[in-house]
């Protein structure tokens, strides 16, 4: 008997005669009513020791240039070019190699969603979010979230997302509390996370 058949037959034997599967009650909140979800998102992101700036759309390129400063940054091919018009960015097309990414000082990307209740940014591996390595190898990440992309709750985000692409939830910069439970921000991924929220 193959391991597969063996495991399946053990499972069937183990639950034979048990009560039928129960229905799952979903009485929890689907949405999150907090008044202004964008304000709340900004507060929650800042709570993770990420820096948050609110910018008007007309000022976006200037603010991006200011944030980037002298850094050499990579951008996803799908990032709107007018967002980074003020800087000389390295576009990830053709895809940059890992050593090339390692030579960058940072990355500027968009996002797929923001979740207000948890202060989470969701990247979906394509378009303006970029493939995963871009927001992972460089040490600095500037993430641009449009106010209209912010949803209230985790259920609202899960409902919106398309599962078939690589998805990354980011809630603050990488962190560890492994040594005496003292929190240290910045271990492997980007040690600094800056978030721009674009208000229309």
């Amino acid at each position: 008997m193959s391991a597969r058949d063996d495991v399946l037959s053990r499972i069937r034997k183990a639950v034979a005669g048990a009560e039928p599967a129960e229905d799952v009650p979903r009485d929890y909140r689907a949405s999150y009513d907090v008044g202004n979800v964008v304000d709340h998102f900004a507060d929650m992101v800042a709570d993770y020791k990420a820096t948050v700036r609110r910018v008007g759309r007309v000022d976006l390129a200037a603010v991006v240039a200011e944030e980037v400063g002298g850094r050499r940054v990579g951008v996803p091919a799908g990032l709107p070019t007018e967002w980074y018009a003020g800087i000389d960015a390295v576009v990830d097309a053709p895809p940059l190699s890992i050593p090339e990414l390692d030579q960058l000082d940072g990355a500027v990307t968009g996002a797929r969603l923001g979740i207000a209740e948890t202060g989470t940014i969701v990247l979906d591996g394509g378009g303006r979010s970029g493939r995963r390595a871009i927001t992972l190898v460089p040490d600095w990440h500037l993430c641009i979230v449009e106010a209209s992309q912010v949803v209230g709750s985790v259920p609202q985000a899960v409902m919106t997302l398309e599962p078939r692409v690589p998805i990354t939830f980011i809630s603050g910069p990488s962190a560890t509390s492994d040594i005496e439970l003292n929190r240290v921000e910045g271990v492997h991924g980007p040690r600094t996370l800056n978030v721009l929220i674009v208000d229309d």
Binding site: Y48, P95, G125, R132, A133, P163, P166, I167, T168, F169
Partner: peptide, 21 residues
């Protein structure tokens, strides 16, 4: 687990994604 609203990173992948990972 960690007593956070959300942990810093959650990765979700589905099989193989061309050109990513």
């Amino acid at each position: 687990s960690t007593g956070e609203r959300m942990n810093p990173y959650t990765s979700i992948w589905t099989g193989v994604a061309a050109g990513d990972g």
